[in-house]
Design a protein around this nucleic acid. Structure first.
Length: 349
DNA sequence: AAAATGCACAACCGCATGGGT
DNA sequence: CACCCATGCGGTTGTGCATTT
């Protein structure tokens, strides 16, 4: 049984021979891949286009990094997997030169076993029930609903304070309280850990997510700032240059990574009724996550004027990955909801 | 030394998605 | 709007090598 795309033709299956590799590489390096389905014929291969594409992407591409995974790569995989789950293609994007297949195989053959050996559930990254619980889990096991009242944020995206931030040390990207993810949807808070949680007005109706600085009066409310008349981000009003523009999805991927030396991201709302935009301020943008080294959300301070019309967010010296954030901010135990819009965070409340 | 087993990795399969008609 | 097609993705299987029995 052949692929749907090649059921009408005789195709070879199984491992690729060096001759086949050579033909494919020669053709693609000369002509580019263009339409995969036409490549087998043009390159003189008895393969289907799908197989050619896979062979090129997973094995023949010149920018592939061969060899075993480094400890750093392994840590990144674990961190990202904790947030995204089995979204191998997304995980692989954070590892230049690695493919989704490679990451997936490495996970299944190596990391998964390591986590299990540590008593961790590779799916949830939580301690498995049979494992000896630590104090944190002991607390959770008492009575989750009473332990965390309705006003408690399900999780926080936190960072060390600016003064003690050490980019050479690794730490979890997100501290997610897994038990809280099973609670009813609550307001989501991104906060500085030094800020007493009680100081945040996260109980306010309609406030879905807030970037706050040390001033309790300065809150950026995504649900309200986007459009004065709407409770959601109004994509129609977003300038095409904005990463919030629907053409680009919620966040333009180009701003997900703060380039080396570029440490400022700016949120601004140019005029009333117009959705805020997110800018990377500083050097030329780059797409490779070169600054991912520590896989953490850096300080993200937000300042607003009295009317909350202009907001500046400063990412202190490290990458601020909105894809992570977006992926993490899924309601009710869904680390990833499959969507790509913050609008999905609007719960029926 | 040969068979059995385990493992890593390559490749396949089916499905989802998006664009074009 | 329905259909077709190409592409991308994640789960699964197949293959070959290494290790163990």
């Amino acid at each position: 049984m052949g692929h749907h795309c090649c059921s009408k033709q005789k195709v070879k299956r199984g491992l690729w021979s060096p001759e086949e590799d050579e033909k494919l590489v020669k053709y693609i390096t000369t002509h580019g891949h263009g339409c995969w389905s036409s490549i087998p014929k043009l390159a003189g291969l008895q393969r289907c286009g799908k197989s050619c594409r896979l062979r090129w992407i997973n094995y023949l591409r010149p920018d592939l990094k061969r060899g075993s995974f480094t400890e750093e790569e392994e840590r990144i995989i674990i961190d990202v997997h904790r947030i995204l789950g089995n979204r191998w293609a997304q995980i692989a994007k954070h590892l230049p030169g690695r493919t989704d297949n490679e990451v997936k195989n490495f996970w299944n053959s190596c990391i998964k076993k390591k986590l299990v050996a540590q008593g961790l559930d590779p799916k949830t990254h939580n301690l498995m029930p049979t494992s000896k619980p630590n104090s944190y889990n002991n607390n959770l096991s008492n009575n989750t609903s009473s332990q965390f009242p309705s006003s408690t944020t399900p999780f926080t995206i936190s960072s060390p304070g600016k003064n003690n931030f050490d980019p050479t040390k690794s730490s979890p990207l997100l501290d997610i309280n897994p038990a809280l993810l099973t609670l009813p949807p609550q307001n989501i808070l991104i906060n500085e850990p030094s800020m007493p949680i009680s100081n945040y007005p996260y109980q306010e109706n309609g406030v879905l997510m807030s970037f706050k600085d040390q001033n309790p009066n300065s809150t950026f409310d995504f649900t309200n700032a986007a459009s004065c008349s709407s409770s959601s981000l109004d994509h129609a009003n977003v300038p095409s240059s904005s990463p919030f523009n629907q053409t680009n999805g919620f966040i333009d991927e180009s701003v997900m990574w703060a380039p080396n030396g570029m440490d400022t991201m700016e949120l601004s709302q140019p005029s009333e009724g117009v959705a805020p935009t997110l800018h990377a301020v500083g050097q030329e943008q780059q797409t490779q996550p070169q600054n991912y080294v520590n896989g953490r959300v850096a300080d993200f301070n937000v300042a607003t004027n009295e009317k909350g019309m202009e907001i500046d967010g400063n990412c202190a010296g490290n990458a601020f990955d909105f894809e992570y954030m977006e992926s993490a901010l899924m309601p009710c135990g869904m680390l990833y909801g499959g969507g790509n819009s913050i609008e999905q965070l609007q719960w029926d409340c």
